[in-house]
């Protein structure tokens, strides 16, 4: 695909450098502290004193992080799949159909995003208890689906709305059923939106702390965000381990994105955007 490059090469290079430095600096700090032998005493040094993997070993061995990573992966992937499916259906409804209460529905869906989550901790905890959802990864997944749904619906609504109606109508003219049109026209066209939404759902589920902590009773069901907190004591912190754990938390999200990025590109080529 050929893109119009109005910037001269030098500007582009500088831009790339600026984006990389700004985006990566905190991550650089995190990783370099995680491998620093003297992590707690790093101060303002830009480069770690010496290299070690001992913080990672501690996090994985004593911290039990492998288990937390697995739990988080189950919860996050579950959240992504379910919320993408459910949200896409709802997005089509609000973007493509006119019906009474449509706008009210849109506001209602968004309304639940507006409540500070911290205020919901106790009511949602009691609700989950009544629904027998406590202490189970499935229950936590459903809660995270609820957290990411409002976002996902709105997001996908934008992408569905951006698909010109004429494209759909052309399909109808050609005799396709609604279901067929949905699968072969709409879905490929909104694929980039589904990708962006999935990334969001994934991160929501991956990094959430307070609900994971309160909902799960067995420590072997904890997710990575709870696991990270193990390295903060009451009045002390184990910085090397905190940063090593944070690195382990960050990596899978990036891997998830790199994998899904290819789909973003293929979603494009499968779609109808090329003339």
């Amino acid at each position: 695909m050929r893109r119009k490059g109005a910037l001269p090469a030098i500007g582009r290079t500088l831009g790339v450098i600026a984006v990389l430095v700004f985006a990566l600096f905190p991550a650089y700090w995190m990783i370099s502290t995680a491998v620093d032998t003297d992590a707690a005493r790093r101060g303002a040094a830009l480069v770690p004193t010496a290299f070690t993997l001992s913080h990672f070993e501690r996090v994985l061995d004593d911290g039990g992080f492998a288990l937390f990573l697995r739990n988080s992966a189950i919860v996050a992937v579950g959240t992504v799949v379910v919320s993408a499916l459910v949200a896409l259906l709802a997005a089509v409804a609000v973007a493509r159909f006119t019906f009474s209460f449509r706008k009210a529905m849109l506001v209602l869906i968004l309304l639940v995003q507006m409540v500070p989550l911290e205020a919901l901790v106790i009511p949602l905890f009691l609700q989950a208890r009544n629904l027998q959802m406590l202490n189970s990864l499935l229950g936590l997944t459903i809660v995270y689906v609820a957290f990411s749904l409002p976002f996902a619906v709105w997001m996908l609504r934008g992408f569905v709305a951006a698909v010109p109606k004429e494209v759909e109508e052309a399909a109808y003219v050609d005799g396709a059923s609604w279901g067929r049109m949905f699968r072969s026209i709409l879905l490929p066209l909104v694929a980039p939106g589904v990708v962006a939404t999935s990334v969001f759902s994934f991160i929501t589920a991956w990094n959430e702390f307070i609900f994971a902590l309160t909902f799960l009773q067995d420590a072997d069901k904890y997710t990575v965000a709870v696991g990270l907190q193990r390295f903060f004591g009451q009045n002390t912190a184990d910085w090397g381990a905190v940063m090593a754990a944070s690195t382990l938390i960050t990596l899978p999200v990036v891997v998830f994105f790199v994998i899904i990025q290819r789909r973003l590109a293929s979603g494009l080529s499968a779609g109808a955007v090329k003339g």
Partner: peptide, 13 residues
């Protein structure tokens, strides 16, 4: 991908 790293780093960290 670099931008994603910025997003993926936990808010607490």
């Amino acid at each position: 991908t670099a931008i994603m790293v910025a997003w993926a780093v936990p808010a607490i960290t």
